[in-house]
Design a binder for these strands. Structure first.
Lengths: 194, 194, 194, 194
DNA sequence: GATGAATGAGCCTTCATTCAT
DNA sequence: TATGAATGAAGGCTCATTCAT
């Protein structure tokens, strides 16, 4: 029964996201995920051939969601408005998906170079970031943006944003998502020098 | 003999750094570290009471090194020059210590909330970042910097920088360390908008 | 299935008893117990959370069996007949449970003071012996027994009995269980002096 | 230097006795013994070829001491007085040598059948007890003692005594050594029945 | 299909013993 | 001769994965 199957898979992915985000890949236990999902360990292995694959599926699912949202929201916008939209979309996404943000940060740090089996986030990130840099490139060409390396710009924006969200997650920074966005606009558009 | 002991400990820390950076905490095997260090497994346990402690020592050692360097280089400088010095110091440090950068990124991502025993990087980062934000605060007070949340500024600079170094490490970005520094100065001081 | 589980647990306890009695706690290897029980190492850990717990369970199980038997057999008997019943029950019990006798002796000798986790045989023995001394106490009060310290009497009987069983186990003494019982009755009731 | 050597060996044996009695064979660590003895680990291995041998030497030394004392004190005594002397000597010995008593009890329980290397206490005990039974045998022949199995009698006395000392060591029994002796004389000579 | 008990490879850690100094 | 740092074998325990029911 395709629908029932899909429901189970969905429930498992949701549970996996929670457990992976809380414990990280290695300390997350399959039986904990099964427990939380309300299924047996065996059932998880009907849908995912290994813990690695399950992990990878969680990543893939969320990342494509994020990517789709970003692409949708920057489409047909002028470079500056597109950049703002990018920031806004990502901040909102991770505000909603705080659990996934933890996994995302962890995995970004882990690089996953060696592990062929695990989802290659690094490669995904590379192509994602290159696509985004086109926006900046256009801005530079049109003379809206300073003559900077578009890739470096997008990496800087993205890194700054991740760090602010991270700090907010950890309670280091008290700002609201809206304030984070605005701070980012200010800093990146006008610079910090008076 | 104190010197000989120190040498062994140093060699082990060096090997541990390599192995942890390559495989991450969980996939790093003590016997691999021993092998690389050219000592026996037992010898590692003469210097470090557990794998966790060894990991923590690697972190502590490098982080205090980084912190000392940063503090030394920003001392007695005007806010804008101090910020530049901060960027320059960190970029150079991680250029030299590429292996440690991997561990650093991974651990930043992992947050280390749960594991009381492991070195609490999150706490270290919080206090480190708060100290640095004083530099920005002074800049704001003196009217050199725009009226922005100093903590947010330092988090943005730090995040952008980490991401650029990361991208360089991964081969996504081709810029030299010097170029990375300059790009960061440009972006953060003048903004990207023309 | 509850029954099957119980069977496995029973089989493991039986195997553990054998291995512990043969090698003692420290030299008994978990994999040896698993082998003898015909299960995997992992299965042992499904039923017992550690080697110590397994050991403690073996002790507890047998000791409560012994205690129950003793209590049942001395109930509603006159002090002298109760004392005989005590001797008879214990001799018979250890005749059947020779393997456990080895563990019992070893553990009695080990005292288990330090190890809070391991079953505190010393405490069990204290309360067990105090209960039994009530029998002697009654005998003294009724004027059936000489005016002796009841606790000392029961400790003497118990010690003598253990030593005779031990010597029989080791082949030092050739007497049958029945002869051991009778010798004990003679010695303790009439004394050895003509 | 023979004298110096002897002193070192003596100091090590003393330390070993303490540590073995406190922790038992397996949990006693060689480095702890070395520490307590104020020598290096290597020095211990100059005098004893293994932990087992050291343990065995502790046993042998004390047991031959005990044996000599017992033999000396029962010599040329009538059977009943010899038996009293035996009890008195052993109670006094273990009162002085409480630490060794712990080792003795533990080892008695452990039987040491399998381990050819370790001192075979069982065999020693067998010959020791057989020698003592001659005293009872003489008593029986002379008609001083009842017609009982001499070996069984000595095992009973010895077992009762060990148990009373044990109970005193553990705080179960409050009697003084003198009271323990007297209780044993009473019980074994006159019986407990009125 | 679903279950979850059973498996067993794998790894951290200990500590008796050795041996270069 | 004395030292104590270095060794490395050995074993308790975990948990991803399998498979009989």
């Amino acid at each position: 029964m395709a629908t029932k199957e899909k429901v189970s898979k969905e429930v498992i992915l949701k549970a996996a996201e929670k457990v992976f985000s809380k414990y990280g890949f290695h300390e997350a236990k399959i039986y904990k995920i099964a427990e939380l999902a309300g299924v047996s360990v065996g059932t998880i292995y009907r849908f995912f051939k290994s813990k690695e694959e399950l992990y990878s599926e969680v990543l893939k699912k969320k990342l494509s969601e994020l990517q789709k949202r970003v692409e949708k929201n920057i489409k047909n916008k002028s470079p500056d408005r597109a950049l703002k939209a990018y920031v806004s979309t990502v901040v909102d996404f991770f505000e909603e998906e705080e659990e996934f943000f933890t996994i995302f940060m962890r995995e970004m740090g882990s690089l996953s170079i060696l592990d062929e089996e695990r989802f290659n986030l690094s490669q995904w990130y590379q192509s994602y970031v290159k696509k985004l840099s086109k926006v900046v490139e256009r801005g530079v060409k049109r003379g809206v943006f300073e003559n900077l390396d578009p890739l470096a710009v997008i990496l800087a924006v993205s890194g700054a944003m991740k760090n602010l969200i991270y700090a907010r997650t950890k309670g280091i920074l008290k700002s609201s998502p809206q304030e984070i966005k605005e701070t980012l606009y200010e800093i990146f558009f006008k610079g910090i020098l008076k």
